[in-house]
């Protein structure tokens, strides 16, 4: 089961876990990415996420398909938020259910690492004294 969405609404970890339920699952790992209040000691006021939505969904589906293929996952649920997020808001939830726990940990880490490299989503950090597109410059 693959469930991938880009949403402007608040994300719900419990809902993601429920979507990932499968009777043959032995282990489910969930990664929750949240908005941190600082970057290198500078206070962050908020984050603004933007996505090329159709391609972002397509790239997230590719990741989910890899997880099913390589780790035998029964369920891969990837929910990503866009829009304006405050400190502690959830930006992404990745939930992977597999027959045994080791595969779930590995697959979940693969999914978030790959998402950060390939999925066309951008974020701007707003500080008290300016703003920066994350990862844009060396």
């Amino acid at each position: 089961m693959i469930d991938v969405i880009i949403s402007e609404e608040t994300l719900d970890p419990l809902k993601c876990a429920q979507l990932a339920q499968h009777p043959a699952t032995g282990g489910t790992v969930q990664f929750i990415g949240t908005v941190r209040n600082n970057t290198k000691g500078k206070n962050v006021v908020r984050l603004e996420f933007e996505a090329f939505k159709s391609m972002a969904v397509s790239e997230m589906e590719k990741i989910a398909q890899q997880v099913v293929k390589n780790w035998g996952a029964y369920a891969v649920v990837i929910h990503h938020r866009v829009g304006v997020l405050a400190i502690e808001d959830i930006a992404v939830i990745i939930t992977v259910a597999t027959p045994h726990r080791k595969a779930a940990f590995e697959a979940c880490e693969y999914a978030i690492d790959t998402l950060k490299q390939t999925v066309p989503i951008w974020k701007k950090e707003i500080f008290e004294d300016g703003e920066v597109w994350v990862a844009a410059h060396p």
């Binding site: 996505a51 930006a91 992404v92 950060k116 066309p120 951008w122 974020k123 597109w133 844009a136």
Partner: peptide
């Protein structure tokens, strides 16, 4: 053609 600067999801 869509321009994709460095991505930063998650």
């Amino acid at each position: 053609v869509v321009l994709i600067p460095p991505v930063a999801g998650g």
